[in-house]
Amino acid sequence: MIRFSHVVKEYPRTGLALQDVTFRVNKGEFAFLTGPSGAGKSTILRLVIVEETPTAGEVRVSGIATTGIARAEIPRLRRRIGVVFQDFRLLEDRTAEENVAFALEVTGSPREGIPARVSRLLTQVGLASKGTSYPKELSGGEQQRVAIARALVNDPVLLVADEPTGNLDDRATRGVFQLLRDINAAGTAVLMATHNLELVKRNAYRVIEINRGQLVFDSVEGSSSSGAASSNTIATP
């Protein structure tokens, strides 16, 4: 699903953000991406969604190498990947429904199927009754659920989440995380960057740890165990 081989990423002004990073995430897998601030987690996720391309090495997503990818190919690849951010990135002047519908409209979904699909997605994320609310009228957890619903519109094979619970309190965090687990249980691979070590410890998922642009720990490879995640599990607990 995702394959990084000796990936180096250098930003024009800030220099090396990733050095020789190699790992892969399989179909249907759930993996945490952890590490201190500035380690390179977001950079990895940006490489996955082809907002960036590697300076050296190779990133393959769903079998496609992102280096030298045709510009026209990128949208097609992105439709197979759902993306969720810490700051939700909803459009403030559109309701929850409209935000979800927006993603369908701009990817050319047949118009007549959109309302039914939107209401099914909002039900799936537990927001069936809040469809006509504007982001301002929703709690952080609810806004993130809208964002997740939007990420799911095209039945992605992979969900990429950059600190999706970073702005949420414990209760909302548990709710959103449970939603991600459900999505994973339904077969979608999830790669989630997080600072929340509690969450990482309590859930026996794979952990990939980055520090200063280098991969320092991968529970699947079984290197220097921290006890956080000891199994190479793919299943949902």
């Binding site: 969604i49 510009r71 026209a72 949208p75 097609r76 690849l77 992105r78 439709r79 993306v83 990135r89 459009l91 927006f102 993603a103 701009v106 990817t107 050319g108 939007r150 990420a151 519109v153 095209n154």
Partner: peptide, 11 residues
């Protein structure tokens, strides 16, 4: 956001 969810350039 359009780009992120996979809208094409021409769209």
């Amino acid at each position: 956001i359009m780009r992120l969810v996979g809208a094409t350039d021409s769209f």
